[in-house]
Structure formats: structure tokens, C-alpha cells
Design a protein around this nucleic acid. Structure first.
Lengths: 186, 186
DNA sequence: CCTACCGATCGGTAGG
DNA sequence: CCTACCGATCGGTAGG
């Protein structure tokens, strides 16, 4: 039992990385099995379908993001302006550190599935909605005039930095984003 | 000759739409041929490889964007602040009008290929670079303090609106983007 | 522009 | 968790 769970976790860790570079559709059972040196059917048995694997991968990416960005911000800052800044800067830091190879998992998954209705798209949507709601909550606690507007702009700057950095390999992207964030928050 | 060119153009028009929803990798020769009611090899003959088809599709999407966004802005406004506003608002309008089904072609293509070096990625990069350079040029003509920073933020707001609108189907995304743009330009 | 193929890979199943 | 398969589809080719 233990080992089965461990194997499943190991599969999903690799799956998140593979999906970050090649997309959730490019995440094929055969390639994933090959990289983990197990048979296709052995891997397949941990999931009921490719769709289930994709959804489990999205959930796993969500836990990684929470562990690396959200929890540190909660531990180090009080609710409000400070936590809002820590969340957005943490998001940017984790892009700059290439924690998801191939760029932000969420930007990729969102662009890939936004036009394809179904449970995979819904899983991406739920994760993004939770992140935006968290930003709005902290913006409200910070006493922002328009918390939704602020959350939108902060996320747009971070997502814009990811797109620019991934495409041009230009670390200046992060500087631009940070400057915009400081102008909004400071 | 004429007809060969027309056929090629028709193929690429469908290809841009298909790639907008299913990605440049999901753009398969078989599906495209099926939708156009021609044989795979008949379609394939217009291109030398799938990669060539992808690059030709990117170029075609670029011409569509220029025709629908850039040229109207040039015709209706003088260089500088007015043209900058017209370009960014035109970009947002063309997202809201669903000119690319499945969301902005560029956001999708960029996220899909940013982690895969090669000529396809380079074609996406060149198109995005030309767009950002155009924004920077108009920002400079408008007398902005930091034209690169302004261009980055304007594009980020527009791209953020696309992501949000495509994922949540929420037209408020465009209002948020327009509000941010007015604050930056006004 | 077509028919008729090729080897490789896809998601998924049978049976152990 | 495996081997051994299935039908479908992939990009691409031969030959006309």
C-alpha cells in the first residue's frame, strides 16, 4: 500500500515537470512510463484514464505551488498588504527559480485548455480561481480601493513576466514586473 | 497557379483557427485535411513538413493580427500616445470579438512553444518581439518616462485579460484591463 | 491533387 | 506490477 502511494507520487512529480514543458496533452503515458522505467500498463493502472492522470497532475502542481509560494507567505507575513506583496513576489521568485521547468505550469495549462470544455479545464480553472481569490482577500485586508482590480493587475504583471521570460529568456522581465508591483502596492 | 495559392491560403486560414483552439501541435495534418475535405497528402504537398505548416500558420496569424489591429490603429491615429492607446485597445477588442476562436493565438502559441527550442518557437518569438517593439516605439513617441516599462505593463494587462476571459468567460476581464490601461496612459 | 501505403506512437485492454 | 496485444491516428512517402 505504502509503496503504491509512493509510486503514484513519483509518477505525478515527473508528470508535473513533463506537462510544464510539453503540455498536459503532450504528457503521454508512454513517455512518462519510459522516463520512470516502468511499463505503460503499470503506470496506467494508477489512474483510470489519461484524463484522470491530467487532473491528478494539476492537483499535484497545485500542492507544489501552495508549498513553495502560498505557505511561505503565510508563515512570514500577517494578513493584508505584506502578505499580498509576499504572495506576488513569491510567484515571481518561483518563476525565476525555474521550479516548473518550461515555465509556469499554470500559464501553460490555462492557455492549453481554456478552449476545451471538460473536467481538465475545470481543474485548471478551480486552481486559478483559488489563487485569484486569495489575492483579492489579501487586497481587501490591505484596504485597497478596488481589491478585484488590484488582484487582476498584480496577477497580470506576474503572468506577463513569465511569458516574456520564457519566450525571450530575458531576466529583465522580472524587473519590469517588480517595478509595476511596487507602483501598485507602494 | 492562382488556384494553388488560393488553396494554400484557405488551408492556412483554417489552420490559424484550429491552432487557436487545439494548439500548434494539436494542429494535425489529418484533421485539417478532413475539415477542408481534401486528402492528407494533397494538403501535405503545400508544405514540406508539419514544422513548415506550423511556421506558415504563425505567419498567417501575424498577418491577420496586423490587418485587424495594427493597420486600423495606424490609419486612425497619429504616432504617440493616441496610437499606443489604439493599439492596446485594438488588441483587447479583437480578443473580445473572438477573432481567434479559443483565445488569443499568440498567448496560446507562446505558452506552448516557449520551452521547446527550434524554428517554431523562433517564429512565435519574432512576432511577439515585433509587437512589443511597436508598443515601445509608440510609448517613446508619446514621451513616456520609461517606454519599455510602459510597453511591458500594457501588454501584460491585455494578456492578463485574455487569460482570465478565456478561462472564466468573464467579460469583466476586459474592464479590468481597460481600467489599468487608462491609469497608465491617462 | 489522389490512393495506398509505411513505421511509430497514441490511449486503452486482456490476462496473468 | 508485467507482456502482449488492439484499433486509431500520427507525420511522412511512393507512385501516379
Amino acid at each position: 500500500m505504502r509503496k503504491t502511494i509512493d509510486t503514484r507520487e513519483a509518477i505525478l512529480e515527473r508528470a508535473v515537470d513533463l506537462a510544464s514543458t510539453d503540455g498536459l496533452e503532450g504528457l503521454t503515458i508512454g513517455r512518462l512510463a519510459g522516463e520512470l522505467e516502468m511499463s505503460k500498463s503499470g503506470l496506467f493502472g494508477h489512474f483510470g484514464s489519461k484524463e484522470d492522470l491530467q487532473i491528478a497532475t494539476i492537483e499535484r502542481a497545485g500542492r507544489r505551488f501552495i508549498g513553495r509560494v502560498v505557505e511561505p507567505a503565510y508563515r512570514s507575513t500577517p494578513e493584508g498588504a505584506e502578505r499580498l506583496r509576499a504572495l506576488v513576489n513569491g510567484y515571481i521568485d518561483h518563476m525565476a527559480e525555474d521550479i516548473f521547468p518550461g515555465g509556469c505550469f499554470w500559464a501553460a495549462a490555462s492557455a492549453e485548455f481554456d478552449g476545451r470544455p471538460g473536467p481538465v479545464r475545470d481543474a485548471v480553472k478551480d486552481a486559478m480561481a483559488a489563487w485569484l481569490a486569495e489575492l483579492e482577500r489579501q487586497a481587501e485586508a490591505a484596504g485597497a480601493d478596488d481589491p478585484k482590480q488590484l488582484a487582476f493587475e498584480l496577477h497580470a504583471l506576474a503572468a506577463g513576466a513569465n511569458q516574456r521570460y520564457q519566450l525571450f529568456g530575458d531576466p529583465e522581465a522580472f524587473e519590469h514586473a517588480r517595478r509595476g508591483i511596487e507602483r501598485l502596492l507602494g
